[in-house]
Design a protein around this nucleic acid. Structure first.
Lengths: 133, 133, 133, 133
DNA sequence: GTGGTCTAGACCACA
DNA sequence: GTGGTCTAGACCACG
């Protein structure tokens, strides 16, 4: 798994690492069971402080994206959020409502937004779902 | 204009104020030329420090959403981003790609996301656009 | 004399008025002896507070650009700064050094700056000077 | 990097700090990648409040002159303005036109201004540019 | 009355 | 150690 961060971005490094991992999963370039780089390895590769990686992994574990097995390393769980359906729907709405408001202030129309949104959805490999027929 | 913030949320107070204003504009409850509450007034209403409001207003001015006029007050400009088209498109894509990744990890499918997205778009009053025919 | 200000600009209104008058003199659209609009008249024309005009006129009088004659109005003196030669040279250098630094950060080269500078100098009607021959 | 401000000047302290940094870059005494003094350190050196330094650094970051990285410090980017070419040219003209008008009222002739301008341009280390030949 | 600047000092987040 | 956020309170500039 290759992760990239931008040390010059305003976003904290640990958040960038968290998102990079989540993104790799969503894009399908990493999947359940895959082992993440060790803390020291990733810190060296990204040229950042090991503590920053530790913090990112802690967050990922708390969200259920990875599990840390003592001595063996960190592994992707393939699980999704363990929150209640209600809470998940609320977060989804907040997430999208915020994105829409920001897009509005960037000067886009609903049609522009839907088009780009569709493109973004294409890039994600959603888990298969039982279909009728 | 009525603005609400949640002092217990992790998001900084000034960012909540910034978003609340942007949201009011997107929702159409406030429009170009409208005057915002004065710094002191809003600080009193939200029970936060005036300097926190000042900071939010500074950010909004920086983004071109409002203008601050000494002795007169703060006013909505009705402008959108002044960034280049290329930069705006990039930001839109980043914005939506991130939202999609987060939604993926919340356990939603593409169809769910598109449905909620459509609902969010409905709530925003986009400027009218010349149509052919 | 026609003066224009931009109420939406960040620069204080009274400074804009001061500069507009100075600019009219420099451009040659107003000359020594000309009478300025009355405070009330200008305030009405610019749609600003009369106190703001009063303040601008006070500043202009302090700098020696205008004289206020009780009951008659304000008149352009045609005089320049009454500061010492040394102080004037210092101010000129500061003025230009600052402009150059800002131009540098706008991404311009020395040649660009000199070219635009020459154009700006063309627009100003400097007083005639005794020439040799 | 040594920065100096004048606490008795009319110009706000934070603006003086902003200009001092820009000037150091223009003069070539500081270059891309250099780290600025920490907020606390500069505040102590200049005998001003740390918040005033924070404000100056925020402005510099907004203009793209520096990046601030939490826990790491503030660094010069070496970038110039990110505005559109058109906007940059407009700002350059305004900048110089204003300087010329002020110089006019200080009582200088075009020749004086050009001479001092040339001297100011000499003091700035413009980035090298590919020459033909 | 409005916003603009500055100080003083607290506590948190980050590397 | 760094920067980020927030509070409290002062005084000035502006309309």
């Amino acid at each position: 798994m290759i992760l990239r961060i931008d040390p010059r971005a305003a976003e904290p490094l640990y958040e960038q690492v968290v998102f990079a991992v989540k993104n790799a999963v969503a894009k399908g370039t990493a999947k359940a069971g895959d082992r993440l780089p060790s803390v020291r390895e990733l810190a060296r590769d990204l040229a950042i402080n090991p503590n920053t990686v530790v913090r990112a992994y802690e967050l990922l574990e708390r969200e259920g994206v990875i599990v840390r097995r003592q001595g063996a390393g960190c592994f992707l769980t393939g699980h999704h959020s363990h929150l209640s359906t209600h809470e998940r729907r609320k977060q989804l709405h907040d997430l999208l409502a915020r994105a829409v408001t920001e897009a509005f202030h960037l000067g886009f129309q609903a049609a522009d937004i839907e088009k780009v949104m569709a493109a973004c959805l294409e890039e994600v490999s959603f888990p298969e779902r039982k279909e009728h027929s």
